[in-house]
Simulated scan of single mutants.
Amino acid sequence: MDDDEAIARSLEGDLAAYEVLVARYSALAHRTAYLLGAGDEAEDVVQEAFVKAYRHLPGFRRQAPFRPWLLRIVANETHNLTRSRGRRSDLVLRLGTTADARVPDDPSDVAVAGDRRTRLLAAVRALPERERQAVVCRYFLQLTEAETAQVLDWPVGTVKSSTHRGLARLREEVGGELA
């Protein structure tokens, strides 16, 4: 069942069809919440986002893709969480689906790769919030510029400039070490 069919059936009251959407997008929604700063509370954010998405499904534009619409709700819920707790939580990255599937044979390669990843993630965490959000959406979640703009509710030009500045800072911070 594709997204359009699942949405149509969900609007008719078929909860099993909505469960298909939840199953399809749960991991991505969870990763998005973590990457945007929800930390240990990502599960709560995702649950609330799916409830809100279901409640607002009648307002969903049928011709639009579901994924960026859902991720926008996740981003809003994450923003609400971080704003309400009054501090920026640590960024916890789940790279399971984007990590290189190749397993190095040499234990020293494993250690070096882990150290590089730790330095890169620390540099991403240190970016200003807008740049971090843009870089996370574009490169960790692999969203297009248009999808990132929709998820973050920014103009495409802001996505481009924030991504550019974020990547420039990352290159300055860790570029030579990770080349």
Rank of each mutant, 00 (worst) to 15 (best):
A126D: 13
A168C: 04
D40R: 14
Q63D: 13
R169H: 14
E177W: 04
T163W: 02
R169M: 05
A179Q: 13
E129C: 00
G13Y: 04
A99E: 15
L35A: 13
R132H: 15
G13F: 04
R31T: 13
G114I: 01
R88Q: 13
I73Q: 07
A8M: 05
E77I: 01
R55K: 09
Q47R: 13
A38S: 09
L152D: 03
L170D: 06
R169Q: 15
L35R: 11
C137Q: 03
V151R: 02
S89M: 12
V103D: 02
A101C: 02
V135R: 04
V156H: 09
H164Q: 14
E43G: 15
E41K: 15
V156T: 08
V46L: 12
W154C: 00
F140E: 05
D3F: 03
P104D: 10
Y139N: 14
W154S: 01
D115C: 03
P65I: 03
F50H: 04
K52E: 07
R31I: 09
D100W: 06
S84D: 15
T97V: 06
R94S: 05
E177F: 14
A101Y: 12
F50A: 09
P155V: 00
E177H: 10
E5H: 04
G39P: 05
G39K: 09
R88A: 13
R138A: 14
R169A: 15
E145F: 07
R102E: 14
D106R: 04
N80V: 07
L93V: 09
G114T: 07
C137Y: 07
A49R: 05
A99G: 12
S26W: 10
L143E: 11
R9E: 08
A38M: 07
Q47G: 08
E173Y: 03
R9Y: 04
A53G: 03
T118G: 12
L121Q: 14
I73E: 06
P68V: 05
L91C: 06
V156I: 06
A64N: 12
S162Y: 01
F60I: 05
G86S: 08
L21W: 12
V103P: 01
R169D: 13
A75Q: 05
L57S: 00
V112E: 15
G175Q: 12
E173H: 10
I7K: 08
A123M: 11
V92L: 15
E131C: 00
R61V: 01
E19L: 01
Q63M: 06
R171K: 11
A23D: 14
A8I: 08
A113N: 06
F50C: 01
A113D: 11
R83K: 11
A23Y: 08
A23T: 11
D3E: 03
A146V: 02
S26K: 03
M1V: 04
R83W: 10
G166P: 12
Y25S: 14
D44Q: 01
R83N: 07
R130I: 03
Q47K: 08
L167D: 08
R171M: 02
E145C: 00
T148F: 00
E43P: 07
R119H: 11
E77T: 00
L81H: 11
E131A: 01
A146G: 03
R31C: 10
T78L: 02
T118W: 10
A38G: 06
V45Q: 13
A64P: 00
A123F: 15
